[in-house]
Design a protein around this nucleic acid. Sequence first.
DNA 1: AAGTGGTCTAGACCACTAT
DNA 2: TAGTGGTCTAGACCACTTA
Lengths: 249, 249
Amino acid sequence: MRRFLMDVDDETLQHIPKYLRIQQELLHYIRSNEWGPGAKIPSEAELCDQYQVSRGTIRRALDELERQGLINRSPGKPTVVNTPKIPLLSSGFRTDIARKGMKPGTKVLRIHVVKVPPDIAPLLMVSENTQLLLIERVISADDIPIIIESAHVARLVDTITAEEVESTSLLELIPAKCHVNLARAVESYEPIALTKAQAQLLACRAGNLGIKDQAVLYDGENRPVYVSTAIVRGDKARIVTETSFHVHA
Amino acid sequence: MRRFLMDVDDETLQHIPKYLRIQQELLHYIRSNEWGPGAKIPSEAELCDQYQVSRGTIRRALDELERQGLINRSPGKPTVVNTPKIPLLSSGFRTDIARKGMKPGTKVLRIHVVKVPPDIAPLLMVSENTQLLLIERVISADDIPIIIESAHVARLVDTITAEEVESTSLLELIPAKCHVNLARAVESYEPIALTKAQAQLLACRAGNLGIKDQAVLYDGENRPVYVSTAIVRGDKARIVTETSFHVHA
DNA sequence: AAGTGGTCTAGACCACTAT
DNA sequence: TAGTGGTCTAGACCACTTA
């Protein structure tokens, strides 16, 4: 049987909400590897008994651990501890490079022509009603889906096939199709909570943490070529970039 | 008075939880600027009436909007819509460059010698009991705290003052003090939920989204010089990087 | 003093998974 | 069928802010 630190309740110090104390204690069991990857944690009913709190309080503690990608919950099944994150090389190579001895995979969702979304238009410096090629795919490592990538191509190209997208990096494919060279990329990263639709494509749960990585790729004359918007699962990957510094004189 | 889409409840389609429908509807009012930055949203009690649900359900809908940085809640005060994110240039310059016409600020928390933390030791290639200089500071833009930065310096330097840290970029200061040039940086980004302590330093709320940006800086001989760990507020900033591609032949 | 958001309880019903 | 997690309710008390 587990011994719970909560029993050692000094009651002396400040007033920390129960759900936070419980969350921190459960976190400790996971961090210390007392509950290793794949381990079942006690059911919500058991935790209610052990901590003598109501189910809402237990669930609130677990919610946070789930959002941080530390545990996996699903209806009908026991809650288990998740496996650690894999580093994912981005920027300069991006995408496909999910090899750390892992099997990369690409599944094309759609390749079609759409009206440019209002947030993408200014990035590509095109007017509002322009038609663009949109490529959407899911990238996986060892059959675990990791990234949803949506690429809006500024120049209209009609001969990109799903097979080409599945076998080549967009960083090579798109410049070749457009007859340009890529010279520069500007990327922005922001943390997000996954929507239901995103979570479904990534086989994880809505509300989990992720990163939205939006890159604008430019040619040698500084004209935008395409915009890639990647939604990266925060529980399975972190984004890694490498920079070289120029020598100042 | 607001008209709420919820009233138009087709009841025909799938079964979406109430808290999600409400969340999406509130999101719509914010996105469409019907509720602009700074606007007060209805109190929880009012929303309960309007949607005919219990307070727990309303709070669950608001929780998600808060974590995404779209609204600000605090006890005793009405909940208001947040202002949009500022882009934050990183990688190559990093840190201090919070100028977009905004006033940059630095507050030094601590400069002291510590035993190297177990997660930092391998990055700096030092043994477990090494003593390192640790610099901790909070960086702000227009007096809004944005980043908590902790830098562990591999080479022991005893003459760094708070004044120097407040007036100079670590990217210039540390190499100068250590008599080396920086040649390379490897950064990793991952989404996090802010802890209570982090939220306190950043004057926002625990559980909000953020990015943990960990950079290892190397000198010309590929020896690690220092590790910088930055916790960036996700509701106020996004991280922007720029990359140039080398020409292949 | 009244209103706000923050925490917590003790129930309930459901869909899902295992056996 | 029993147990699990997912949703929801209708109360309650608190600390805090504002008038």
